[in-house]
Write a protein that binds this DNA or RNA. Sequence first.
RNA 1: GCCGAGGUAGCUCAGCUGGUUAGAGCGCAUGAUUCAUAAUCAUGAGGUCGGCGGUUCAAUCCCGCCUCUCGGUACCA
Length: 676
Amino acid sequence: MMRYTITAALPYANGPVHIGHLAGVYIPADIYTRYLRLKGHDALFICGSDEHGVPITIKAQKEGITPQEVVDRYHTIIRDSFAEFGISFNIYSRTSSKIHHQTSSEFFEKLYQDQVFIEKESEQFYDSKANQFLADRYILGNCPKCGAENAYGDQCEACGSSLNATELINPRSAVTGHTPELKMTKHWYLPLDKYEPFLKQWILEDHKEWKTNVYGQCKSWLDSGLQPRAVSRDLDWGVPVPVDGANGKVLYVWFDAPIGYISATKELTPDWEKYWKNKDTKLIHFIGKDNIVFHCIVFPAMLKAEGSYILPTNVPANEFLNLEGDKISTSRNWAVWLHEYLRDFEGKQDVLRYVLTANAPETKDNDFTWKDFQDRNNNELLAILGNFVNRSMVLTHKYFDGKVPEPEPNAFVAFDKEIMDEFPIIKQKIETLIETFHFREALKEAMNMARLGNKYLAETEPWKVIKTDPDRVKNIMYIAMQITAGLSQVFEPFLPFAAAKIRKLLNFETVDWNLIGNCKALPIGHQIANPELLFTRIEDEHVVAQVEKLQSTKQQNLSNKFKANDSKPLISYDEFAKMDIRVGTIVAAEKVAKTKKLLKLTIDTGIDQRTVVSGIAEFFEPDKIIGQQVSILINLAPRELKGIESQGMILMTEDADGTLRFVQPTLQTKNGCEVK
RNA sequence: GCCGAGGUAGCUCAGCUGGUUAGAGCGCAUGAUUCAUAAUCAUGAGGUCGGCGGUUCAAUCCCGCCUCUCGGUACCA
């Protein structure tokens, strides 16, 4: 028996969870854990809500409630969704819990006492009216790049630039509107660079077996050199930094969140140390690809620094799931939310589990479509698995009053043996596949067991043989029932609800991986229950409704969500008149080498032909905009971009969905005409 | 741009360290069958393995260049 600690990424408690989360992290982790338990291993499955961090405080502020109220709401929704989908956590905890605060505090203290951290002072914005330091997201100002108002301190949403708060022009606090001042503040840094040699050895040399996407990402980070990372922030929501003079400082969320795995284990069992500190325990982190660097580099560095913990054996990160061809997006509401699915498809947890496993983004991003969902339910789950179980039960009832018939041991024919011999082979394949995190393939092999069952019945034709050789049918149905019993075991990790239902129908409650394929699980004479259908057909109207729902939320989002920005302060006519805006025509366009967004345009302004560098390359093909009339600000001070002098600025507008459009006269207009 | 991961039958994906006619499921076609939720079983059609070069007796698998998708990072009036 082996011991495993299995973690699934802590979902961030600022929204519900959707099918992308389930497909990428929780279902694979659940399959893995259920499998290990079936094999008799000691496997703890740990998860919880990640409840700290700035986005939650912002959400709370927007809604006029406390951060705790925000996380309480989503923690409940998330926890219940997982429970209903049969994600078999041993514990689903949360990082706002007392035990987590305590655990992460102690963790920090240990590193602090061992003098692992670097202490560093730097200047940060401080709001003297609110008496607090401001996180980057809490500072608004004019974007230094594009001049847009209300750029955030970390990013301008108008032009997409990532910023430093100190670059903002006219910065103001999002809390009070006050102009913040720069003030020195002290923070603690984890010197990741010091652990670089260790990490290089541990990952690049000792864990070449990790998935290529994970290994590649790590190599990329390690090769480019690691930097010390701040582990604290000036914020009042989180785990307070347990050091004198650290008032108003909390642990940075990336530091406390992974410790959540440890606190949850602690909450679960007094025996927790054996799952985290015993060298024989295998620690497996299931995550999405966005989390690779934290789980492969940062958290291991923390654990290593602490000294008494084991490091992960593997970090099987998955890619992302798309939905009907588009990226899943919480803000655009382009998602299938679990709590809504549970309401719309009551009792169909396994259908989604099946589809998401069969189409899991294991090696690359994958697409979920409702059509595929319908097809897989109707043509695979129902037609192959459900149908086999049903027909073997119906036949057993018809010929043997629902009792497992007694076979004549010497009467098994070559074909019987051939079929029976297949099952241990498939079982072995599934084991290897699950143990190497190939869940998609493993599920396919499990389905092959049901296929084999169908094939067996089709070839042996008990409904014909019964007329001529009833004894032979005893052997046939004996085997068919044993196959069914095997299915009730093999699907336990993948489709726990269906597996349990098959066992209920068989009147057979034992769960044991080793029963798969031994073809004698059900005793002779065993009475089975009446047949019931495992799966029901999903009709077109159900999936059409879902697609329409998606389309309409998408439409609504577009029209509803857009809110015109507030008017800027008044200016005089003279101020306006300073801007010399002309009608021009694009006469040449080419991509600026080594950039993604920049086009080098040559504009005929009526006065001259000049070069303008414009960040529109993601929306326009150079060839297709030649001849396009534009409005151009011609007396903007030239600026050099990527070595090219840009002499002016093309006026663009951005539609609600982010698409850029030219602002041009309604009819062809002479170049050089003024816009006024 | 740089780094990483992908681009294999209509669709979704397997293909270990290069080696005979490149595989599976779904879909499609044909046939068989009726115990079963018009479910099942068999057979078959379908691919210049993103493109171009190179190494090799031999490349989907190695190398170079290009191209497209996704992620990270940089840049972005």
